[in-house]
């Protein structure tokens, strides 16, 4: 177990290294001459040269990458070339809203998945209804969901605000903050629930239909709650939990869109602005944060999976 974790940690570091190197090369190759971009078309050659020297743009990419990596290891992500604001500060400002949004979305997604799965298991007709609804929801892009929610709850019913972020430290406090986060969380959470439900439902079905220990439990006359809680659930939630972990990675894409629609000042909005203004340090700092987070979450998901489902411990080691 410990060896496995160490192995995974090494793999994690390699993946983060490869991704940041690829991102660094990609961004630097594609962005063209950032100095010309920043100074405008009418910049004097002297000014361009001075900025080149200041930003070390004349060094080979690989050297600049290791310079950057060295700084990163010391906790320095540089400053924005546009606003000259330290990237670390921008990140610490952007992380809380994004984090809250993701938690909210997971709560919505998991709740919906558990409720619909329970309904799907209980009756035949709800099963068809629920899978149909899941397929429909799966086919609606996140930004369409967000706009529909705004039309219904903000512009028509005037129930919820369409701007999604109120700092908990502001006058409204946490109450206002949470009310404002309802719609963004639902918009993002709806997108993930069909996948959750699919995996949870098929895992539970499989246990109920195929496994003999369930039949035995029924024959012993155990109460249904006990069969589900004690026997079926631990064997079924493993896939679901690793799903939650891998979905967090996919959530980032939705985060960019939802933050844009609801004007939430999180990482997604920060990245979008950085892409728009070719702000390389902010872009790389954001990417590093996201990739590290995704890789860690995946590892945690896998470990929990192994902890819960004893069968995996034996078979999954080399996967």
């Amino acid at each position: 177990m410990l060896r496995l974790i160490l192995e995974r940690l090494v793999q994690m570091v390699i993946v983060v290294f490869v991704v940041t190197l690829a991102a660094f090369t990609l961004v630097n190759l594609l962005s063209g001459d950032i100095a010309v971009y920043l100074l405008g078309d009418h910049a004097t050659p002297e000014a361009v040269a001075a900025l080149h020297a200041q930003l070390h743009l004349d060094d080979p990419i690989i050297i600049r990458y290791f310079d950057w990596l060295g700084d990163v290891l010391q906790g320095n992500l540089g400053t924005s070339v546009v606003s000259h604001y330290p990237v670390v500060k921008s990140l610490t400002n952007a992380i809380p809203p994004t984090f809250e949004l993701m938690i909210g979305a997971q709560i919505v997604g998991i709740t919906l998945a558990v409720v619909t799965t329970a309904a799907a298991i209980k009756w035949r007709w709800t099963d068809r209804l629920v899978t149909g609804v899941a397929l429909l929801v799966n086919s609606i892009p996140t930004f369409v969901v967000a706009l529909i929610l705004i039309i219904i709850f903000s512009t028509t019913l005037h129930l919820l605000p369409s701007i999604g972020w109120v700092a908990p430290t502001s006058a409204g406090g946490w109450g206002k903050n949470i009310v404002a986060m309802i719609m963004p969380s639902v918009a993002l959470g709806l997108g993930i629930f069909p996948e959750y439900m699919r995996i949870l439902r098929s895992d539970i079905r499989e246990q109920l239909d195929r496994e003999e220990y369930v039949t035995l439990a029924w024959m012993k006359g155990l109460r249904p709650t006990r069969i589900f809680g004690k026997h079926v659930a631990p064997n079924s939630v493993g896939g679901f939990i690793s799903m939650i972990a891998t979905t967090t990675a996919l959530l980032i894409s939705g985060v960019v869109i939802v933050e844009q629609v609801f004007a939430i000042p999180g990482i997604g909005k920060m990245m979008l602005a950085a892409i728009d203004s070719h702000d390389t340090p902010v872009l790389l700092g954001g990417l590093l944060t996201i990739v590290t987070f995704v890789v860690i979450i995946n590892l945690v998901g896998e470990l929990i999976y192994m902890r819960i489902d004893p069968r995996v411990r034996a078979t999954r080691v080399t996967a």
């Binding site: 993946v15 690829a22 990609l26 980032i252 894409s253 960019v256 892409i275 070719h278 990417l287 990739v291």
Partner: peptide
């Protein structure tokens, strides 16, 4: 896979 998909697409599309 670790690369956030939409952000990769955004960077490529923009640049």
């Amino acid at each position: 896979l670790a690369f956030p998909g939409l952000i990769l697409a955004l960077i490529l599309a923009d640049f």
